Amino acid sequence: MTANPRLDLADQGEAADLAAFLGRLLRFDRAAAVRLQAVPGADGGGVLAVFGRLPLGGSAVLALRTVRLAGEVAAADLTVSAGQLLESVDEPGARLTLPAPVTGPSWAGLLPPRSGWQPLGQPPVDLVMDEVRAAVAEFKRRTAEVPEHHRSREVVDALADEIWSRPLGAVEGLPLRVAHAAHAIGFLRPGVPLQAHRAGPWLRLDAPAGSVALRTGGAPGAGLGLSPLR
């Protein structure tokens, strides 16, 4: 991809959706990196998969947004700055220019598998959103109840981790953390269909706008700070 760093997107909507996704990632981490995988299509065009990490507690949650590509597409796999990629998105022209690769963070070396996923269920999005909102409200309330002189980052992180580690009632097998991540990145929207899956230690929640995946039992980046949705 070095000789042809520009990618043509399928339309302006794809460019706008990619820009919104990158903007949300940067809200959590201004120095965020994303791993990109460009896959050519059999009849031209192709897909660009964009992976980013959401720092939401003791286990790294990954968010995936796919973007439809047009024109000639060469296979590529690289890690770049999310901020530089966002700056390169030309929404009116429906194109982007790939920034220079960066040294990838540890999470970028361990992505969810492409196959082997087993269905866990199709949780109703309204119930999932209700659970996330209730958990956010509890986090705010309990944080406010902690005396200010005891409200350290460690205390707040431990409280958030306790809440988001609970099981999601709308579907068996997923923690609230996964739904929280999907909500924080903008994938949960009223009326959209959801699907939950498991593959080995990985859990995944799919929505039309993208997917979030969590590696259970510890993952690269474990122990980093929390950024609870407010």
Rank of each mutant, 00 (worst) to 15 (best):
V89F: 12
I185L: 10
H197W: 15
V89W: 12
S165P: 06
M129N: 03
A170W: 08
E138C: 01
G93M: 08
P112T: 07
L120K: 09
R166Q: 10
A108K: 11
L120E: 01
V192T: 14
P175Y: 04
V128D: 00
V102R: 13
L174T: 05
A108Q: 04
G173P: 08
A144Y: 10
L86R: 15
L110D: 12
R142P: 08
R177I: 01
Q122V: 05
A82T: 12
F187L: 10
T103L: 07
S88R: 15
P190T: 08
L96P: 13
A108S: 14
V132R: 05
P99V: 11
A182L: 07
A196M: 11
W164H: 00
P112A: 06
R142V: 04
S165V: 02
L194Q: 09
E91W: 10
L174W: 06
T143I: 00
I185Q: 04
L174Q: 02
Q195M: 14
A160P: 00
E172H: 03
T143M: 04
T103N: 10
H149N: 09
E172V: 11
E91R: 15
M129G: 02
D90V: 10
L110A: 10
G173I: 01
R166F: 02
H149T: 13
L188I: 06
G109Q: 12
